[in-house]
């Protein structure tokens, strides 16, 4: 079955696929940072006792979590240019380019998932810690930023990284709007050279190796940082 397997086509495509991989990794890293920051804000909002703050956050999270990522990507490709024209007041305003549209879509989408992870992490911090912080005279922000979040994040690091691996796999979906991420590069070469078998199996192999190694590292990290109980 591999008798007419053409390894040469993979080798020739390597520089192009490398660029695609940089796109995928860049998108993953930026969306992860943005998603964690926004997710933390959403988690704090959801945990607020003020209904006017917690309800919009839970509405946002539940809405995005019940919508497929592809539909969200389509939504933002449609909405972002309109929003730019609206806010800049210039009806001829240029778009912000496909990379930034994808980045906004992934950040806002992943924030919903990060929010739930971070919320669980915050809730796992013993209530006594917060009470002690208040007893020391810290206000809400001081207690949250200096006492609760550091402990919460310490417990969450492995899950946040695992979600990052899922995000890396999800970035392959930018294919639907024609961007050249790693998978996009693979499929463009595959169709240009008529070498679908080689390119798609190679793409699968690369994704597998990267994600598998990353998940092993996360597993080791998890064993190392689990605080003694």
């Amino acid at each position: 079955m591999f008798s007419d397997f053409d390894f040469d086509v993979i080798q020739r495509a390597l520089p192009y696929m490398g660029q695609g991989m940089m796109f995928s990794l860049g998108l993953t890293a930026l969306a992860m940072i943005g998603g964690i920051v926004l997710g933390t804000v959403l988690a704090l909002m959801r945990l607020s006792s003020i209904k006017a703050i917690s309800l919009p956050a839970s509405g946002y999270v539940n809405l995005l979590r019940s919508t497929p990522l592809i539909l969200v990507i389509f939504w933002f490709y449609f909405l972002v240019p309109i929003a730019i024209k609206h806010f800049s007041g210039d009806s001829y305003a240029q778009g912000i380019g496909p990379f930034h549209s994808a980045l906004i879509a992934f950040t806002l989408f992943e924030a919903a998932y990060y929010c739930e992870i971070i919320r669980a992490g915050i809730q796992s911090v013993p209530a006594g810690q917060i009470n002690a912080a208040y007893a020391l005279g810290l206000n809400y922000w001081q207690a949250t930023i200096q006492v609760v979040l550091p402990q919460a994040f310490r417990n969450m690091v492995p899950i946040l990284l695992t979600q990052g691996i899922i995000l890396f796999q999800d970035t392959s979906l930018v294919y639907v709007v024609g961007l050249t991420d790693f998978m996009g590069a693979a499929s463009k070469v595959a169709q240009r050279d008529g070498r679908l078998v080689e390119m798609y199996l190679f793409a699968a192999l690369v994704y597998f190796v990267l994600c598998f190694i990353a998940s092993l590292i996360v597993k080791r990290l998890q064993m190392r940082i689990t605080p003694p109980r």
Partner: peptide, 23 residues
């Protein structure tokens, strides 16, 4: 389990649709 969850779903789709008939 390791093989299937470390490869994106999109790649699975392409492999079943484009690659399977060749293999």
């Amino acid at each position: 389990v390791e093989l299937f969850r470390n490869i994106p779903l999109l790649v699975h789709m392409f492999i079943w649709y484009f690659v399977m008939p060749e293999l």
